[in-house]
Nucleic acid binder design. Structure first.
Lengths: 237, 237
DNA sequence: CTCTGTGAAGTCATTCACAGCG
DNA sequence: CGCTGTGAATGACTTCACAGAG
């Protein structure tokens, strides 16, 4: 265990490891070596060991890692043992889709508030979870009352920086941004941007160059379920 | 102009450059040097030059790049001069949100078909664009008829690999995947995964460690509009 | 003898720094 | 001169390979 700086690539992988371990636990597997884990999910065993070693000595030499124990450690390292309360700014298509997204729950995130500037939407409750839509001008107050600690920006690019400023002023330190702009965050605030435009345009680049030997995703995986996967096609036409 | 292998990081940046240039063009700027571009948008000028030089000698020494000309080149390099037709598998919240997403249009993408296995949804048209929902079993046929060349996977992780197999069998070479699984693509097929779980869990990691001096997003940007940005707060809540 | 944890080596990406064009 | 295009230098991330724990 060193206390060097942990790169974001590493934390992303920790999240993947946790997901893999959850699958293994579900399959009743109690113990796994870095090598077996790497083989299963197409990763590199040295990288797994190195990533984990930043945070402690979780393995047992000659044996491997206890699946359950490692799950607990990763959950704790990733801070998923504390519930997070998410406020979503922008109650358009994307915002409401996210408010209804169930994938959050497994990671201990819950959407607790939506914000919009459209009077027609304010005051309504949306989706199965019945998340309330608030006036975006009340953001700071609602963030306090609802103890929101993560914000999602799902507004047009034009106003995204302004929204980010509001969100930061409300004291939020972690933001997931879907607007296709580079946002300027103050120190101590973390913004992760998911830029669909970039993703699509990269795909377009690839399509424009069919000659390229697709080495882009070098290790190509087998998800756990590949085992139960002989159904290349059960459909006709 | 070399014809080395272009990394995905580079193509992602090309997409960003194009966006920046569009802003500049909108502001009436005709010519820009790599240095000025880098300053404006918080990038590194050498990197801009290097990225561009992979594809040709677009600049004029002593002067810089013609904004319009470079826009045209980038559009062509990224293959955005050809329209792309997108099929979205999964007409749930996310799928329908994407079908209505306008951001596509600027990059010359259009959502032309949705697919689902829910009988109640099949045959209906969704959103402003009135995109038709098809039975997922008819995917190959619809892909052919509608000339779909890009697929979006917006289905539960459990079935994502099966859907990818179908999509690949239908001859699609470029896929944007929202399911939180590592998918196994055959050679010559490009899958880009947008994994919200990883993004959220990384944010959670960050929140669990407030002491970390946030160096994660080393260059912190000024979007073009920062200029018109003195409104840190016009709201009182 | 197996598998971890980790220095050392290797690979890939970014940045520097400057020759040379316009 | 100013700025591009690019080799060379640096830095970041990954993989190798092995000492040593169990």
């Amino acid at each position: 265990m060193k206390s060097e700086k942990i790169s974001e690539l590493t934390t992303n992988r920790l999240s993947v490891y946790l997901r893999c371990l959850n699958l293994l636990a579900g399959a009743g597997i109690k113990t796994i070596s870095s090598q077996a884990l790497a083989d299963q999910f197409n990763m590199n065993s040295a990288q797994i060991r190195k990533d984990l070693a930043y945070f402690g000595e979780f393995g047992v030499r000659g044996v491997g890692y206890s699946v359950d124990e490692l799950r607990r450690h990763l959950t704790q390292i990733l801070g998923l043992d504390n519930a997070h309360r998410v406020g979503i700014v922008g109650a358009g298509n994307l915002g409401t889709a996210l408010a209804n997204y169930n994938g959050f729950t497994a990671s201990n995130f819950a959407a607790v508030a939506l914000f919009d500037n459209d009077k027609a939407k304010v005051g309504r409750r949306i989706g199965e979870a019945q998340v309330m839509v608030h006036d975006v001008r009340k953001l700071a107050r609602v963030v306090r009352d609802e103890r929101v600690d993560v914000a999602v920006i799902a507004v047009p690019a034009r106003v995204a920086q302004r929204v980010l400023n509001q969100v930061m002023s409300a004291g939020i330190k972690a933001i997931l941004n879907f607007a296709p702009v580079r946002l300027h965050a103050r120190l101590g605030v973390k913004v992760k941007t998911v830029d669909l435009t970039i993703s699509l345009e990269s795909l377009s680049y690839f399509l424009a160059r069919p000659q390229i030997t697709c080495v882009t995703n070098p290790r190509s995986i087998l998800p756990y379920e590949e085992i139960a996967q002989r159904d290349e096609q059960e459909l006709q036409n």
